[in-house]
Amino acid sequence: MSMKGKRERYLPLFFVLPTVIIILIISIFPLIYSFWLSLCEWEIGIGADRVFVGLRNYARLLTDSRFLNSLMNTGRVLFFGVGAQFALGLGVALLLNRSFRGKNLVSTLFLLPMMVSPVVVGCIWRIIYHYRYGPLNYMLNMAGLSSVNWLGSTDMAIYSIILADIWEWTPFMMIVLLAGLQAIPDELYEAARVDGANRWQIFTYMLVPLLRPVMIIVILIRIMDTFKIFDLVFLITFGGPGQASETVSFYNYLTGFRHFSMGYASSMAYFQLAIIVIIANIFLRVWRRREEA
């Protein structure tokens, strides 16, 4: 009995151990290693040795106009991209939050864009955005509008990326928000209706507060992923024209794996991580406060 009791006591630990070990070995190691690199200058392009330079890479970040530009672009994707995904996703979720025949089928159809690989999404949109032969400009022309220079204009390129991103990730927002909506018991709707609330009041006074934790989490997940947006930029514009559609993670890739300034690239990754952690903390604080209240 005592043997068994002992085994039982350590069982939970055994459950967690594999995960922790894997994460420690191949996730924490890169984390520490690349932090060390971020304090070094390491131009592996010319086979130079690693030189410890302290915080110089971080100082360089703040004066690198191309980095600041990429930060701005990421901000645009966050603001317009995630914003539109949220609004659209919530809209679709509200439309789907009712029972009708074929509802599961329709919801699944809505999910297809996020199921398709971003590489495929990039290829698809590159054809769609083609200035002379793309179906999008063709439809605009049919509607009597003039062609839009989707990929060849420095003002437009980043928004073309954003549109493709919205297309790809709205379904994610939609499905999670829909799940949240369906978790709300019918009785609450009934009660609200009995109290004489109209639809708008139900939405603002009941649904939004109840959905708040879900909203916060889903937006947070999208923000974290948006900082990593890479495949779409890589395939649709490769950051161009010029630097017009470079996002932080794309510029980060360029510095690390094209210019091979490994130290600088690592510092950029850490800077990015710091921003994400700050944002995540703000979100979670808001979320916890809600929960406690």
């Binding site: 191949i26 890169p30 984390l31 900082f227 932080v248 993670s249 690390g256």
Partner: peptide, 22 residues
């Protein structure tokens, strides 16, 4: 759990080279 999730926040470029070397 939050700590585990935060690993997801790390930009992939930061772990690419270390993983490659690993």
């Amino acid at each position: 759990a939050f700590w585990i999730l935060s690993i997801r926040m790390l930009p992939p470029v930061a772990s690419l080279l270390p993983l490659f070397l690993f």
